[in-house]
Design a protein around this nucleic acid. Sequence first.
RNA 1: CGGAGUGUAGCGCAGUCUGGUAGCGCACCUGGUUUGGGACCAGGGGGUCGAAGGUUCGAGUCCUUUCACUCCGACCA
Length: 568
Amino acid sequence: MRFSKLLIPTTKETPNDATLASHIYLVRGGFIQSVGGSGLYNFLPLGKKVLDKVHSVVKEELDRAGCQEVSLSFVTPAALWQESGRFEKYGKELLRFKDRKENDFILGPTHEEMMVNLVRQTVQSYKQLPLNLYQINLKFRDEIRPRFGLMRGREFLMKDGYSFHSSTEDMQREFALMEATYKKIFTRLGLEFRVVEADSGAIGGSGSKEFMVLAESGEDTIVVCDACEYGANIEAAVRKEKECEAEAPEANFSRFYTPDVKTIEALSEYFRVDPYYLVKTVAKRALYDEGRSEIVLFALRGSDELQEVKACNAVDANDLVDITEDELAEIGLIAGFMGPTVIPEGVRVVLDDTLKDASSLICGANEKDYHLVGVSFAGIEAEYFDLAAVQEGDLCPYCSKPLRYTKGIEAGHIFQLGTRYSEPLGATFLDENGKAQPMVMGTYGIGVSRLLAAIIEQHHDEKGCIWTKESAPFDLQIIVSNIKDEEQKMLGETLYEKLKAQGKDVLLDDRKERFGFKMKDYELLGIPYAIVIGKKLQDGLVELICREGLHTEDILIDAVIDVVNQKV
RNA sequence: CGGAGUGUAGCGCAGUCUGGUAGCGCACCUGGUUUGGGACCAGGGGGUCGAAGGUUCGAGUCCUUUCACUCCGACCA
C-alpha cells in the first residue's frame, strides 16, 4: 500500500482526554477516531487492519479447536432476556429501546440468550452434542463512565463463544481446551499474560478464569504467586490461613468502657492488642431483585479488609451500597462501636471464615463508647464466608510462598456456566434413555477491540506504538527519504514491488514530505521494520530499522530482499 | 449518582469580567524555495460561537432554561 493513498490522519498533538499510552497513540496514529466522545470510536483504515489481524488470529485458533463461527442478530428482542431473568437484573448498562410497534428490544452486551435460543431450536439429541459456537461481533454496554479509549468503550468488538454439552465432565473438558486455545491466541499476539481465578459476576456460573494482560495501567488488581502458577483476581483470591505471632489478649467476657475509640488503629493502641484480635464490622445495604434490600453486618478480623465482591456474593445480592451514619442510627447501630454479637432485629450478620471458632476477641458492643472483650465464637452457629481481601505478603494457598499484587487488563474470560441459562430458557436434549435434560454450558469471551489497547499498553515507547508481529498493520515500511530524488524513488518502487510479489504486506512512504516528518510517522505507527532509502544510497546502502529499540543497520542494496525475508 | 470543569473552524485554544466588523496555532488548498529528524515565504478556503428563550439600537460576551461532553469518585468486561 502507498502511504500517499492511505487515509492515515496522524497528528502531533494528543487529544486532551487521553491519559493512557494506548489511547494517545491509537488516536495520534490515525488508527481510531473518537465519535463525539462518550466511548464511541470509528476504526480508520489502519485501525481496521489491526483489528482484522487480531480477529483472524482469534478465528484461526478457535476454528482449529473445533469451534464454529456464526453471527447473531445485533438487536435482540427483550422477550429472550425476560425469559432468562436478566432483563431486570442487568441494570442500566443494558441499552433498552422500543420499536415503532412499542415492542421492547435491547442492544446485546453479551449473547447467552440469543445463542441458547439458536441452539434450542436446532439441537434435540445428545448425538448433536457437544457444540461450540462463537461469533466476533459488536457489543454494546452503556458504561457509567466510558474512558481510556478502546479500553473501556461503550461499543466494542468481542468474541463470545458458547459451548453445549450433555454432561458436566464434557463441559469441563471443553473449558480446559478453551483455556489452552486462549493461551495460544495471546501467545501468538505477543502478549505477556497470566491466567487467573476470577469472580463470575453478572454472567453467573462457577469456576471462571480471566486472561490478564500484564500492564501497569490495568484496571484490575490481581494476586500472583511467583513461586508457582497460582494467580487470582483480587475479587476471588484466596490465601493460606493466617497465623498471628502476637500474643492473644486473654480476658474474661466483659463490657469495657472505650470513650471515643472508634477505629481499628485506635482500638489496637488503646488495648495494646494486635488488630488480628479485633473484630472489624462493616455495615452495608444489600440490594436484591424488585427493589428489596436489607442491612448486613460483615465481620472480619481487624487486620483484614472487606472484599466487596466476596461480600456481595456471600449474601447473594445484586449490589452492596454504603450506609450513612444516620441510617445506622435509625436501626440502633453506632458507627465505631458496631459488633456482630448483640444485634438489632432485621439486621443480617455474616462472619468471615477466619472468625470461625475464634476466641480472645474484642468487638463493638453496639452501644456508644463500649466494646466487648473476651469474645469467643467457638461453637457459634452463623453464616461464615470468605470475606477478606488477600493482602500482599499473605501466603500462597498452594505453595505457602508470599503473594504479591500486580495490575492486569482483562482481555479474556471463560466461565463454566452449567445450566444457568439452559434451564430457564428450556434448552434441553434427549439423552440415551430418551429423557429430556438441560444442556450443560460453558461461555468464553475475548475483548477483541480491547486487545488492540492491551497490545499497545504492553508494547510502546515514548515515540509511539510497537506492534507485535501478528498484530502489525503492515510487515514492513519502506521510507523514501527524498521522493524527488529519482534514484531513491526508483529503488523504493522496485523493492516495494518485489517484496509485495513475495507476499509481504508493505507500506511504501512515497509522500512528498521531509525526512523527519516521515520518520516521526513511522515511529508513531509502530510497524515492526522499516527500510530507509536515503543518503547512503550513493554508497550502495540502505538502512534497516527495527522499531523495537530503534536499532538500525546498513545493508547492501543487493542483500535487502534476503535480509528482509530472513527477519520479517 | 456525588464533586469539579468545559462547550467558539477538522484538532488544540484565546476572546466572555468591561456588549460594538469572530481571532490564534496545527491541519487543509494554490504557487515557489527546501529534502537525514514534525521546514520556509507568499496567497487562500473554512464558523447557525452547544441549543432555546429573553434584555438591548446591537449579544460569542449579560439574564433564564436546557442539552452535551470531560476530569475525580462510586460502579463495571
